[in-house]
Every structure is written in structure tokens, then in C-alpha cells.
């Protein structure tokens, strides 16, 4: 499976191979992205993935609603017994996740 989207704010790519789901989110993840993010949460529950990596290395900005969307993906992963990892949050995104102590509920790889 390989899916991509181009939007005004968030852009994402989903790649699923051999039980690994790789999601890349770029740009800005804000409350306007709820509908688009559904594709990501749906993908987390699809197929027989055991691992899900959400790559935020090219995400420039996240607001509290965006953090809420990550929690929705986490919930879906938990229900489907998928291990979820957030990879390389940078700048403001890293600061927000640190402030909200998201490292206590997500595995975060820097």
C-alpha cells in the first residue's frame, strides 16, 4: 500500500510493507486536518502491521488538536496491538511533545 496526499497544511505519505507501517507527516498539523488525518488512523488499523512509525522529521508545526490526532492514532494502534513510534520530531513540534510529556505515552526516537 502506498498512499500520498497534498494539502494546504498537512501532507502525508503512508507506506506499508512486511508488517511495517511507515507514515510521514509534513508541513503543519492543525485542527483543520481532522478529516485528512482519518486516512492515517484508518491505515493504522489496516492489514497485519505490527509496527507503525510516524515520521515527523519534516513536520514544521503542530497545535494541540494535532497532538490530539496523534493520540487517536495511538488509541487505534493500541486496539490493534500495533507498536507505535514517533520519529524525529523537530523544532516547535519537538518542543510541544516535550512540554506535553508525550515521551511518557509514546516511544519517541530522536
Amino acid at each position: 500500500m502506498n498512499k500520498q496526499s497534498q494539502g494546504v497544511s498537512m501532507k502525508y505519505a503512508i507506506d506499508s510493507t512486511l508488517g511495517n507501517l511507515h507514515i510521514t507527516i509534513k508541513g503543519r498539523l492543525t485542527y483543520t486536518d481532522y478529516n485528512n488525518f482519518n486516512y492515517i488512523t484508518n491505515a493504522v488499523g489496516e492489514h497485519e502491521n505490527q509496527q507503525c512509525i510516524i515520521d515527523l522529521s519534516e513536520l514544521d508545526f503542530i497545535d494541540s488538536a494535532g497532538m490530539g490526532m496523534l493520540l487517536m492514532a495511538r488509541d487505534k494502534a493500541f486496539r490493534h496491538k500495533v507498536q507505535i513510534t514517533i520519529k524525529s520530531p523537530q523544532g516547535q513540534v519537538g518542543k510541544m511533545l516535550e512540554l506535553g510529556k508525550f515521551d511518557t505515552i509514546f516511544l519517541i526516537e530522536h
Binding site: 494541540s64 497532538m67 516535550e98 512540554l99 506535553g100 510529556k101 508525550f102 505515552i105
Partner: peptide, 9 residues
């Protein structure tokens, strides 16, 4: 002011 926001866990 770091801390897990309310209502998550």
C-alpha cells in the same frame, strides 16, 4: 510547565 495534559491517561 511540562506535564501530560489532563484527560489522556
Amino acid at each position: 510547565s511540562s506535564g501530560l495534559p489532563l484527560g489522556i491517561e
